[in-house]
Design a protein around this nucleic acid. Structure first.
Length: 281
DNA sequence: CACTCTCCCTGAAAGC
DNA sequence: TGCTTTCAGGGAGAGT
């Protein structure tokens, strides 16, 4: 599931492969993903040189030598792969970028929750997709003071609040569970009770878990490309996510006598949350 | 405005 | 074994 660290790693992989390259041809193989592709997408990109690839929240931004920005989101199942020119198309290869070095980069997305669109330069901040977004926890001004202020008076759970991209961008279901575990805060806690003192624990853990994942992504992918040609994914070692029924590993908190508690799974807002009921309060 | 719920989609896994 | 059902989730939009 691509959240901020995966998108960051994908961007670095794409930058490595595409920056400075000319798009000789672009194939758009269906009319839409979550939203329609611009009808002239392929035409607008053909012949352009890729100047820069960067990340904004969970979006990939591709800057060309002229024309609008390419904005892409991987949704849940979106992937970028790289193959030699002419390799057989895989199922769900929706967009194919033919580079000037006989490589192809492909946007593959089975569940089609992703998107790719064009946004004029300088209109990014005002664009519907980005307007009202909260700060980036890695590159933005995401401080305990800011978070405590943003959560003040909120009656929803801290879990739901952290998934709200208007409060902070980049977090998805997995990293929210992980960050709350690390901070010792229950996902069920009312967001408004996360005061400055608690935010001072939570914010560094959010940053740390994301930064560690980015580091793992960078170091575990050879030149950001896996043997199967996939860009940007890597093995994780979650502390709570997907570990329902397993013993909590937080030995320090539990102590030897008490022994570890068991990781629980609950559903909040229709999504799974994993946590340790003993060390998260 | 704050908040919750539903929907989009496919494939893996569980259930029968 | 093979079919059917359930589950996974980002974000938009509807509903309360």
């Amino acid at each position: 599931m691509p959240e901020l660290p995966e998108v960051e790693t994908v961007c670095r992989g794409l930058a490595h492969l595409m920056q400075g390259r000319v798009l000789k041809r672009v194939d758009v193989r269906r009319k839409n993903l979550r939203i329609p592709f611009p009808p002239d997408l392929a035409q607008r990109l053909t012949g352009r040189r890729v100047e820069r690839i960067s990340r904004r929240a969970k979006y990939i931004i591709m800057e060309l030598d002229k024309g609008p920005l390419v904005v892409a989101h991987l949704g849940m199942s979106g992937r970028m792969t790289t193959v030699n020119q002419g390799a057989p198309l895989e199922k769900h290869d929706h967009v194919v970028f033919h580079l000037d070095n006989s490589m192809e980069v492909r946007f593959n997305d089975p569940r089609r929750f992703g998107l790719m669109t064009l946004v004029p330069k300088n209109e990014l901040d005002a664009h519907k997709l980005f307007k009202g977004q909260g700060p980036d926890p890695i590159t933005g001004d995401f401080s305990p003071e800011f978070l405590a202020g943003a959560l003040k008076g909120r009656k929803t759970s801290i879990k739901a609040a952290l998934l709200d991209q208007r409060i902070v961008v980049g977090l998805g279901n997995i990293y929210v569970s992980e960050a709350l575990f690390r901070a010792g805060l229950s996902p069920k806690r009312k967001a408004g009770t996360v005061n400055l003192e608690r935010a001072q624990k939570l914010v560094p853990e959010i940053k740390a878990v994301l930064e560690e994942a980015i580091k793992v992504g960078g170091s575990s992918l050879r030149d950001h490309v896996q043997p199967n040609g996939e860009l940007g994914y890597f093995q994780h070692n979650w502390r709570v996510y997907g570990r329902e029924g397993e013993p909590c590993r937080n030995i320090k908190t539990h102590g030897r006598k008490a022994g570890p508690a068991t990781i629980k799974r609950i559903v909040q807002g229709g999504r799974s949350t994993f946590f340790c009921p003993r060390c998260q309060k």
